[in-house]
Amino acid sequence: MAAQTDTRQHILDSSREVILGKGFTAVGLSELLSVAGVPKGSFYHYFRSKENFGEALLEDYFERYLERMDRILKPDGRSAAERIIRYWTLWTESQEAFEFGTRCLVVKLGAEVSDLSENMREILHDGTERVVTRLAQCLMEGIRDGSLPQTLKPVQAALALYDLWLGATLMTKLRHDTHAFKNALLATRQMLQIQ
């Protein structure tokens, strides 16, 4: 059973980079098989179709992303305001390291697959809702610990911030510069009233 899980995970892990580079529809099954180094039969043993593979890829992405997010935002002696700024700083660093591409499957695949697959759109929607929920929780902790303003509406602010940072990631990719991240961080600090 472990070998099966390992093979399935290997297909997902090895394919992620090519999907991040080219997108979902531009990558054919033969390229996925080549990158993963598995025969067609192995692919279809784990995934009913390329769409089913895409669903699994997104589910795996969000599972890993949310685990990292939980580690960054968990209470650790720092204020919630410090933790939320650290989250956005790490977001910026992870995107900049990819040389104006994107490490974010939401940005890379959001518009592309939402019109092609209702199942993939739902996974993207549910995953982003879980991201926003975690951001809102951290903002609520900031209100409680006094590091964020009492007037802040955590859910609205979390959604606005996530939208802002997704847009900044897209604009960084389009412009091939990091000004959008600098502006997003400034807007984040202003919205949250953090010096």
Score class of each variant (00 low, 15 high):
Phe62Leu: 01
Tyr65Leu: 15
Gly146Trp: 06
Arg130Leu: 12
Ala136Gln: 07
Ser79Glu: 07
Lys153His: 15
Lys108Phe: 00
Thr128Ile: 08
Arg103Met: 13
Val113Phe: 11
Pro149Thr: 11
Lys74Asn: 02
Thr102Asp: 01
Asp126Cys: 05
Cys104Arg: 01
Tyr61Glu: 07
Val107Trp: 04
Ala111Met: 08
Asp76Cys: 04
Gly110Trp: 07
Leu73Thr: 02
Ala97Gln: 13
Arg144His: 12
Arg130Thr: 09
Leu73His: 08
Asp126Met: 15
Leu124Asp: 00
Cys138Glu: 11
Val107His: 09
Arg103Lys: 11
Glu141Arg: 09
Leu152Lys: 06
Gly142Tyr: 01
Ile123His: 09
Arg144Gln: 15
Glu63Trp: 06
Lys108Trp: 04
Tyr65Val: 07
Thr102Trp: 07
Arg86Thr: 11
Arg134Ile: 02
Trp88Ile: 08
Arg68Ile: 01
Ala81Cys: 03
Arg83Pro: 01
Arg144Asn: 02
Ile123Pro: 00
Leu109Asp: 00
Arg71Ser: 10
Glu118Asp: 14
Gly142Ile: 00
Gly110Val: 03
Glu129Trp: 06
Gly54Glu: 04
Gly127Arg: 08
Glu118Thr: 12
Glu93Lys: 09
Arg144Phe: 02
Met120Trp: 05
Arg78Tyr: 06
Thr151Pro: 02
Glu82Met: 05
Met69Phe: 02
Val131Trp: 09
Lys153Thr: 14
Leu105Lys: 05
